[in-house]
Design a protein around this nucleic acid. Structure first.
Lengths: 151, 151
DNA sequence: TATTGTTATACTCTATAACTATA
DNA sequence: TATAGTTATAGAGTATAACAATA
């Protein structure tokens, strides 16, 4: 975002959005997501893919539907996502019953998730740096509350 | 999001994402954006369109490029956005010089932005309800810091 | 009857590149 | 040389509907 205009300083414009929680939430989220996206790009993972690998590592045995429920991703959109991770050899499925398959990481997937975790931790630390540490627990709790407010 | 699975309670799964600021920021933002989207739908406005109208009302004379800079929207994506608002008669352009046009609301646009503002205020209040009021100013300040952390 | 997983499809948002005209 | 505005296009992310197989 280039704020350097010659004859007009848009950073000093009267801002009716200044105190809007939803607006700043959106701006902060998209800033962090953009950074996470480019941070994960060298590892050839998108944020959602990395999140899924981390979730499977912590909870081997989850099904595809479980993951969708936890992350708020529709079943229809999980299929191609998991297909990509499977095709690249990061996960393996084992039959639970006729319709469900439990998921686990492969050796390759374990290597990948370690790389991803390192990248994510550095990304998180980078953004936390500018914040008051004492505020963080309450802020994350508030974000969880907001995330759970299904309209 | 249906969390009601019969034999597995995904809400009690070990959650490695629990303390991730970026993750909860994304979840909270998408929850609020989804609500704002459906709240504005009856007024036939999308969140970004409403935001643009509010910004023009507070700053008549801004150009399309100014708005893009303030809201972080690329010029290429501003064109169809403004075209829609112009076609619907909410804004008017007046020539500044050969390449810039300053923007203002029409009568119709003023009516529209009042409706939008009312909807947005109610939406904000609904989400703030669940939060500690004392936390909000610090939280919004933190969000602004995060939003400004251009990686 | 409800759930798992799949396919197809459409719509929004965003990102890039190329072009014009103006300054 | 840089900026304003436009057009076209491609990639994500997300939403719905339909379907088969299974519980």
């Amino acid at each position: 975002m280039d704020a350097g205009s010659a004859d007009k300083d848009v950073s000093r414009v009267p801002d009716p959005l200044e105190d809007l929680l939803g607006y700043w939430l959106r701006r902060a989220s998209s800033a962090m997501m953009a950074d996470l996206g480019s941070s994960l790009a060298p590892a050839d993972l998108r944020p959602t893919e990395a999140t899924i690998l981390i979730l499977i590592r912590a909870n081997p045995g989850l099904t595809q539907s479980d993951i969708g429920r936890v992350l708020g991703i529709a079943r229809a959109n999980m299929a191609p996502l998991m297909g990509g991770l499977l095709k690249r050899g990061f996960i393996q499925k084992s039959r639970v019953d006729g319709r469900s398959q439990s998921l686990a990481l492969t050796e390759l997937g374990i290597d990948k998730v370690c790389v991803a975790q390192t990248i994510i931790d550095a990304h998180e630390a980078r953004f936390r740096e500018g914040l008051d540490v004492a505020l963080l627990p309450d802020m994350i709790a508030a974000l969880r509350t907001l995330a759970g407010s299904e309209a």
